[in-house]
Design a protein around this nucleic acid. Structure first.
Lengths: 207, 207
DNA sequence: TCCTCGATCTATCAGTGATAGAAAATCTAT
DNA sequence: ATAGATTTTCTATCACTGATAGATCGAGGA
């Protein structure tokens, strides 16, 4: 009675605030998609959630703080898109993982900019938000480990391949699949290279 | 006398204006590197070139137009960095070409953002500036043709590899060489993949 | 029922890009 | 050399931005 009483009485205010904050973040994404990430107007945003502009500061401390909320939200979306288990052998799991990442990039330009490009002057994710990013990179590393890739250089090269596919896709064929469909080829190319180098110095390759 | 007279009399005004415009663009890059691309203040910029803010509008029509001048300037820098001839066989020439591109990206974050990322809301390069970008991509295509790569899919994959190296380098190791030094490996990986696929359908690969 | 404190408001600030129109500087031609 | 024309720069101002101060309102707990 005592504990549940406390929890319930504290809840309603906090619950409404959390719900409204979620609405704010959702509308902020919508505005960003319409006008551009840096062009979000707090007055526009406030109007969309039935508030005046200064009232927003009850939900975040600054515009950068709003970007931080969106950053964390974006990485949660990424984890939700990338984490679900995939059936099949490790190679196939890696291919599908890559395909999901490139697909994720192409779905939302401004989300891609906020998560993967340093596009807002002065913005840096908070430690709490950054933890979500690290969580994602750990997930990627584990997918790679499943196919036996653990060397830092190999991981660096792999990260470049994936980010390159995503970047080209969104920059030159937004909404299409011109680079998404290269996912399997690029993974095979990468795995063949790792194999070839593991097979060792047969003359070319590493100097 | 007549023609040279005309040319000389018209020149001084235009020459001074061109020189001042060059100064403005140079100072704009400097401000962008300090404060961020989107955070350039026209009043700050004007103060640096001994003008008041409205006077800048004699040199460009809007802030987007300033970005366009910087965009063109950036691609001229890229062409200057990438175009010089390279000695050696085609493969070596391609490796060095890629190394130069990745190096170019890492040298200047905001330049990379303006040239390769759609970071300024609403900004699109003018046809005249875009022509410089096309010129660069033609140069890249010719380097690829030298090693026998002309298929659109191959070019797409190559572009993803290079942009991925540049992106990771500037995002995660600005000023360093963690991805720059993977240039040769990535080119060899790519060429081996093209060869392997040219060697044809030995069971895996294309479906 | 009172009263506290959280939520929202109005009013205002300095700074932004952009425009209008006056003043100053420079070149051209008589 | 001087008058006229043109270019360049200026001051003053606009609407809009993110942010802050302080008053007002309203729901929750005693």
């Amino acid at each position: 009675m005592a504990t549940s009483g406390e929890a319930i009485t504290v809840a309603p205010r906090q619950r409404r605030k959390d719900a409204k904050l979620a609405t704010i973040v959702r509308e902020a994404w919508d505005l960003a998609r319409r006008d551009g990430l840096a062009a979000i107007s707090l007055r526009d945003l406030a109007a969309r959630v039935d508030l005046r502009q200064p009232s927003l500061y009850a939900y975040f401390e600054s515009k950068h703080d709003l970007y931080d909320l969106m950053f964390a939200d974006g990485y949660r979306q990424l984890l939700a898109a990338a984490a679900p288990e995939i059936a099949g052998d490790p190679r196939r799991r890696l291919v599908e993982f890559v395909r999901r990442l490139v697909q994720f990039s192409t779905e939302d330009l401004v989300r891609h900019q906020l998560l993967f490009q340093r596009t807002i002057p002065g913005f840096e994710p908070s430690p709490e938000s950054y933890r979500l990013a690290v969580e994602f990179y750990d997930l990627a590393r584990s997918r790679l480990a499943e196919v036996g890739v653990t060397a830092p250089d190999d991981i660096d090269v792999f990260s470049a391949l994936v980010s390159g596919l995503g970047h080209q896709q969104i920059a030159n064929d937004p909404g299409g699949d011109r680079w998404v469909r290269q996912s399997e080829r690029v993974v095979d190319m990468f795995l063949a290279d790792v194999d070839r180098r593991r097979g060792a110095n047969d003359g070319r390759g590493t100097t």
